[in-house]
Simulated scan of single mutants.
Amino acid sequence: MIRYILRRLVAMPFLILGVVTLAFLLTTVTKGDQLASIVSDRQMNNPEVVAAAKARWGLDRSLPERYVIYVTNLAQGDMGTSFITRRPVAQDVLYRLPATMELVTAAIIIASIIGISLGVLAAAFHNTPIDHISRVFALIGSSVPVFWMGLALLYVFSVQWGVLPGPGRLNPRAALPPQVTGFMTIDTLLAGNIKQFFDALWHLILPAFVLGWAVAGSISRLVRANMLEVLSRDFIRTARAKGASEFRVVVRHALRNTMVPTLTVIGYSFAYLLTGAVLTETIFSWPGMGSYAVDAARGLDFPAIIGVTIVGGVIFLLTNLLTDIAYVVANPRVRLS
């Protein structure tokens, strides 16, 4: 087990370097002009201003030189300076990342609860209306585009019915609590503001549900398929013959044997949502990594684009590592082999 973890940790820096190299090279082959985000249109015809801007941002150097400088600075924690905000990209990312982490954590919790529950019910009541309803729910979540679902639910629950708040993390007229963790729900509790905590929680429900619905559908289908296969095994028939209740058979015997592959899907889904929450954050005005990436792409902010790509890649690799370790821990047969 320890050797397995060490091998993965040793390979991690090389994988991260590959992500950095790929992100850096992709920004150099794009048709966008990096100077367009630095120099105004009226100054683009001024050779002195253009030369000064290139020298200031290192654009007058060759590609290999810029790559070596960037990797060297990155090793020291410097991801460059944003063309738009004029702040260090690392500072912007650290400010935005907790908002995305909070949203994705809530989304994966909602997706896991709904997906596992529907999968168990669909398998326990196979070929009944409950089974058909759960499959329709999973199909809708997997096939309907996130942007359409977000706009539709936002219109229904916020505009028409008014039961859930609109975009944002808090009431726009409310003062932000002191930032300790970056998680709005936790920071409001640390500030002792219970009313603001529930406000942050209500703002979190709708975007988290929209983001987690597709994952809930995938989890539901996986749990249903594995449960049906497990329920047909001999040890399940033996448990029923011994007089075990149906609830005990389904939950304790069948569900426990389906949790290892389900755990793997949940872990990979968490990594996917962290890097794929762009549309949800844009629709709900969520100030996270996704909306930061959209603003960077619109403004041709190449340092920010590279920074977001690197952070997303590193998070994806770390999440996959933790998921694989959890899989090895949960499945003794993998550990013994």
Rank of each mutant, 00 (worst) to 15 (best):
G182R: 02
G182L: 01
G182T: 00
G182E: 01
F183Y: 05
F183V: 06
F183K: 02
F183R: 04
F183M: 10
M184P: 07
M184W: 10
T185L: 13
T185G: 07
T185Q: 09
I186H: 04
D187S: 09
T188I: 04
T188W: 00
L189S: 01
L190T: 07
L190F: 09
A191L: 06
G192I: 06
G192T: 04
G192A: 02
I194Y: 05
I194C: 00
K195D: 14
K195P: 00
F197Q: 02
F197P: 01
F197T: 13
F197K: 01
F197E: 01
F197H: 03
F198Y: 11
F198I: 10
D199N: 12
A200E: 07
A200K: 07
L201Q: 10
L201T: 15
L201F: 15
W202R: 12
W202N: 11
W202A: 14
H203L: 06
L204V: 09
L204Q: 08
L204G: 14
I205P: 08
I205V: 15
I205E: 05
I205S: 07
L206G: 11
P207V: 05
P207F: 01
P207E: 02
A208G: 04
A208F: 04
F209Q: 08
F209W: 09
F209G: 09
F209P: 10
F209N: 07
F209C: 08
F209L: 14
V210R: 11
V210Y: 13
G212I: 06
W213Y: 15
A214L: 12
A214D: 14
V215Q: 14
V215E: 03
V215K: 03
V215I: 10
V215Y: 05
A216L: 01
A216P: 09
A216V: 03
A216M: 03
G217F: 00
G217M: 00
G217L: 00
G217T: 02
G217H: 01
S218P: 02
S218G: 11
S218K: 13
I219A: 00
S220Y: 05
S220G: 04
R221W: 04
L222V: 06
L222K: 01
L222E: 02
V223Q: 03
R224V: 14
R224K: 15
R224D: 13
A225D: 10
N226L: 10
N226T: 12
M227I: 11
M227H: 07
M227S: 06
M227V: 13
M227A: 01
L228Q: 08
L228C: 09
L228P: 05
E229P: 05
E229N: 07
E229G: 02
V230N: 00
V230L: 00
L231I: 10
L231P: 03
L231N: 08
L231K: 10
L231V: 09
L231E: 06
L231R: 12
S232M: 06
S232A: 13
S232K: 10
R233P: 07
R233M: 15
R233E: 15
R233D: 14
R233A: 15
D234N: 15
D234P: 12
D234F: 13
F235I: 00
F235Q: 14
I236E: 01
I236N: 04
I236D: 05
I236S: 05
R237G: 08
R237E: 11
R237P: 01
T238P: 03
T238S: 11
A239W: 11
A239L: 12
A239K: 12
A239F: 12
R240H: 12
R240P: 06
A241C: 06
G243F: 05
G243W: 10
G243K: 08
G243M: 09
